[in-house]
Design a protein around this nucleic acid. Structure first.
Lengths: 250, 250
DNA sequence: CGACCCTTTGAGGGCCGTCAAAGGGGGTGG
DNA sequence: CCACCCCCTTTGACGGCCCTCAAAGGGTCG
């Protein structure tokens, strides 16, 4: 258990995650409002379902520590992973505005969540429009990532998709302070997760992943990922680096 | 030119689009705020680029009439259509929160847009939190559609993807009052657009589309779409009908 | 009438999916 | 401490869905 995998503090003002450079500091007033909004926390073990797919989400969550993913499945079991959730990610907005089931959420690692009641969302907007604006910021940023993923799954081939995923997850992990001194980040996905996120089969994912690894582009070992040749990966994926802007943390 | 393809009125209160059952009525106060937020309108001819892909979007738009689509391309020209924009759709939030280029927007038909300055968005949140909340509603709803599209492109085969697209676009067009008495809706896409939206090639799209049409599932003629056997299409696509809730119209 | 764009159809090939089975590696229980 | 088990990874063989290449047909507009 690293420090990052611990449970959130009682007071949002003491939140260690906020100290990461990836996040924008809040004012004391905003912080108090977030604190009042938060009604609890929740711990989920690795592999457990946080939200089952076919029940409407009735809460809002912020990931404090650990990894998770959102997914949808078809009737015959084909699964698509919609995106991965890392510390600081906000989940559940869709459920607030849709009475029906939308997606499932499953923990990849031990997971700690801050829990917010959906009924409190409107109050938040009313009392602190700035936080409402921040939530829209998160939502729009999320949408930009989804656009990139759709381009990846729709138009990139297997090697390009995998290069994309590796770069993207590495950067996201690095942003929230998960990178080691040796440049490696935790990588708790199995190859099945990679396949389901990229719209590929497990077997083809394995073969492509091994090929990139043999080419010396990355290293995947002991649950950690290192990018040995980021430029080559970016060239393969046609990835264009965008500066990461500090995100609000609700 | 049908009435639906006309330009928006000077006053939001006179907006004919708001009368459609797909939209939630606003209070007079909210309406005034939207009116103040709106700084202009814009007409775009069919096939023209509204926003070039590699320039950051510096405005917010609501589609008043006509069809458009958002897209991204790779360096070698492969294009992915991210989604289609119909009357009432709100575009440009991403640009508000990202200085870099995100996606392009192109008109499928003659297009009329209401234009809002991005700098005004924060004022809107501050003055009318309820409208901020409404924008979040739109954003979350958009995200739900994107999730469904990602599942489609990632895990459905060609026939399933096309069935999905036909049902989905038919319902969206019907919701904003574009359906004819005979149950047909306008369908301004070429097969290349369908292919680019679904991550397929033009040729395979054509073959699959013709197959479904020969099976009597739908009819695509004269720029209009009729679903002759919606149940069969839904069965093929594993589509689950979700009740459409009235959307806020900014 | 020709130019252009979109649609349609055929042929062939390749990327990726499915099937099958062996090879680790970590955890649990004996 | 070892053995077993389960899950994940890895590799090979083969087939099919879908892509690419090519070209003809139709509809619209100048």
């Amino acid at each position: 258990m690293t420090a990052a995998a611990s449970r959130p503090p009682s007071f949002c003002a003491d939140c260690t995650l906020r100290l990461q450079p990836g996040f924008k500091p809040l004012t004391a007033e905003e912080l108090a409002c977030v604190q009042a909004f938060r009604t609890g926390q929740q711990a989920v073990r690795a592999g457990q379902t946080v939200v089952p797919e076919h029940r409407a989400i009735d809460r809002l969550y912020t990931v404090f520590s650990g990894w998770a993913f959102r997914y949808k499945t078809l009737a015959d079991g084909r699964r698509q992973i919609l995106n991965f959730l890392l510390p600081g990610d906000f989940v559940g907005l869709q459920g607030e505005f849709a009475q029906a089931a939308t997606y499932g959420v499953e923990a990849l690692t031990a997971l700690h969540l801050c829990v917010f009641p959906p009924q409190g969302l409107w109050d938040l907007y009313y009392q602190q429009p700035r936080l409402g604006y921040a939530i829209t910021w998160l939502s729009a940023t999320q949408e930009r990532l989804q656009d990139e993923i759709l381009l990846t799954v729709g138009r990139r081939n297997a090697a390009e998709r995998i290069a994309m995923l590796l770069i993207h997850l590495w950067r996201r992990a690095e942003r929230v302070g998960l990178a080691d001194a040796d440049g490696s980040v935790p990588f708790p996905l199995t190859q099945q997760h990679i396949a389901d996120a990229l719209g590929l089969s497990l077997v083809h994912t394995n073969k492509t992943l091994r090929r990139l690894e043999r080419l010396g582009l990355h290293r995947l070992h002991g649950g950690r990922l290192s990018l040995l040749d980021p430029e080559a990966l970016e060239r393969i994926a046609d990835y264009h680096t965008q500066p990461m802007r500090p995100a609000p943390l609700i």
